[in-house]
């Protein structure tokens, strides 16, 4: 297994399930190559743990190309580790030095309870989308795609917001565990497009209500979310959500 010459001390959060409390355990991993991804280092460690008869560390991961949003490690005090615009799975060991100690924790928020070790339950995000993060168009109702020209600038902005992968790094980075960046990205995407107009007011109100019900904290504009977002979603979206919400609350007739 050993292909490289990096030795790393890992301190990893171990927690059996939702009900128990957890603690940091220390592991030494040796012979790590700097071309390995951060998760591949965990693969190596887990293989070793199995061979030693210890339970491997549970962590969420799937596509390993930075798009599915499943990986979620809080590495040395930063969600997805030290690089900007990069998910945990795209973080490589060349970002660390031989001899480093790396502390790995799960996302921490009352709305993201720990399932096991580094795995958390992010179904609160699904419920927020289910509360209004869509355009109500049944299949088959659509008009021709080109019948609705959309200024390129609006389409680009909507795309930039829609690039959110729903990983929850924003919540994990925020000192208030606020989900405003996530919610604002979806509200912005749909508010910027003409298709999103009919439900625009309703959507903002419902999604904010669900966000609050899930127990996320409120936004104090520290900007940590955008600084840590692997898709670099802009804070402008949060301002837009504030606008949308206030406009909807004060301007609607219901």
């Amino acid at each position: 297994m050993s292909e490289g010459n990096m030795n790393i001390t890992l301190k990893v959060w171990r927690q059996k399930n939702k009900k128990t409390s957890g603690k940091l355990e220390t592991y030494q991993v040796e012979g790590i190559s700097e071309d390995m991804s951060f998760l591949e280092m965990f693969d190596v460690l887990n293989e070793r743990l199995v061979s030693e008869g210890t339970e491997p560390i549970a962590f969420d991961h799937d596509c390993r190309e930075g798009i599915c949003g499943m990986c979620s490690m809080y590495i040395n005090g930063q969600p997805h580790g030290p690089l900007q615009g990069v998910t945990t799975c795209q973080l490589h060991m060349r970002s660390f030095k031989n001899g480093d100690t790396i502390v790995v924790e799960p996302w921490r928020s009352v709305a993201f309870p720990v399932v096991k070790d580094l795995v958390v339950d992010r179904s609160s995000f699904d419920r927020i989308i289910a509360s209004g993060g869509y355009i109500s168009v049944n299949t088959g109702n659509a008009q021709d795609g080109n019948s609705l020209p959309i200024p390129k600038d609006d389409a680009d902005k909507a795309f930039a917001a829609a690039a959110c992968i729903g990983c929850g790094a924003c919540v994990s980075a925020c000192k208030n565990a606020s989900a405003m960046l996530f919610v604002s990205a979806k509200v912005s995407q749909l508010a910027l497009l003409p298709q999103g107009q009919p439900e625009r007011q309703d959507r903002a109100m419902k999604m904010v209500a669900q966000m609050d019900a899930e127990g996320f904290g409120s936004c104090t504009n520290t900007g940590a979310c955008a600084a840590e977002c692997p898709k670099e979603i802009s804070l402008e979206n949060i301002a837009r959500l504030n606008r949308e919400y206030l406009g909807a609350s004060l301007g609607s007739t219901n």
Binding site: Y134, I135, V137, T139, G140, N141, A142, Q143, D144, G145, N146, L148, P149, I150, P151, K152, A155, D156, A158, F159, A162, Q189, L190, L193, Q195, G196
Partner: peptide, 21 residues
């Protein structure tokens, strides 16, 4: 029809300066 459906759902496909797909 797929393209039409996706556009209606708010999928932000790439567009030209004239606003078309």
């Amino acid at each position: 029809n797929i393209i039409d459906q996706c556009v209606a759902q708010g999928v932000p496909f790439a567009r030209e300066y004239g606003g078309l797909l």
